[in-house]
Simulated scan of single mutants.
Amino acid sequence: MTRRTAYDIAYSPCPNDTFVFDAWAHGRVPGAPPIEVTFADIDITNGMAERGEGDILKVSYAVLPWVLDEYALLPCGGALGRGCGPLVLSREEGIDLAGRTVAVPGERSTAYLLFRLWAADRVPGGVGEVVVMPFHEIMPAVRDGKVDAGLVIHEARFTYQDYGLHCLADMGEHWESTTGLPIPLGAIIAKRSLGEETLGLLAESIRVSVRMAWDDPEASRPYVREHAQEMDPAVADRHIGLYVNEFTADLGADGYAAVRGLLTRAAAEGLVPPLGRDALAFLSRG
């Protein structure tokens, strides 16, 4: 294996990503190759993946059907879990979403797939217009009456009450109750052209970085705080506690079942292209 000087990696400035990658980004993972980090929100990294930009990317699971020919899903580093799904928020409690305008954080987002699957079950008349906007603009838009409801992700789970909003539905709760599986949110992918040995090294580097963060949480705090912007430290800690879990260290059988289940259901609804049989396989696809 000819090792490159450094590998390009792009992930979000959210606390779960900076917590996971802190040790690797700062050269503390023994034997791990150097990485050059770009911070970008998930809608940006999804686009990068579709254009084939970047060696390693944090993306939405929803984008996988479009990129798995060029990228491999790594079995660690991503975000899956329980009790951590996107929420649909509104100004008024209990409104009927049939025909209503709903803001969403991207039509390639996992949140959007979960929302569409929920709406197919729970909104018989179908929602009205879907408006795509950056996730940080959604709660103000709902509060100000620019849209009837908004689909929110990340730390909005902990802060939506500050905007005077109500939780109309929990997409993760619906997913878990209908499938029994964890909620797939964000994936780590890497270029297949790097070769199996390198992909294995990258995956192991992530696993070790996660374990080092768990073993010494204080070591990651400066990196997390530096990129969490205005986020309250207590909210950042809750964010990490919710999105960094056993599935971050290894997807395992339940994790892979959740990913395949989501994308299979979404394909049946015509939301994504169907997956090939071995599309999610790490390393060899034979």
Rank of each mutant, 00 (worst) to 15 (best):
G78V: 14
A62G: 15
E53Y: 12
I56H: 04
L57K: 02
Y71E: 07
C84W: 10
L57F: 11
L57M: 09
L68V: 13
A72Y: 02
G83W: 04
K58P: 05
D69Y: 00
G83P: 09
L57S: 09
L73M: 11
K58D: 08
R82Q: 04
L57E: 11
A62M: 02
V59I: 15
I56G: 03
L68Y: 06
L57T: 04
V88H: 09
D69H: 02
A72W: 06
L87F: 08
L80P: 03
V67K: 00
S60I: 03
P86R: 10
L87Q: 05
D69A: 04
G78K: 10
W66T: 08
G83E: 10
V63T: 14
G83T: 09
R82C: 01
L64K: 05
V63D: 10
G78I: 14
V88D: 06
I56L: 13
D55V: 12
Y61W: 11
C84N: 15
L57V: 12
C84V: 15
G54R: 06
G54M: 14
I56C: 02
G81T: 13
V67W: 02
A72N: 03
A62S: 12
Y71M: 05
G81Q: 09
V59W: 03
P75L: 13
P75E: 15
P86L: 14
P65H: 02
V67P: 00
P75F: 09
P65K: 01
P75T: 12
V63H: 02
V59E: 07
V67D: 01
L87G: 07
D55K: 06
W66M: 07
V67A: 01
V59T: 14
D69L: 00
P65M: 08
P86Q: 03
C84R: 14
G54K: 10
Y61T: 12
A72M: 12
L89Q: 09
W66A: 14
W66I: 05
G54N: 06
G81H: 11
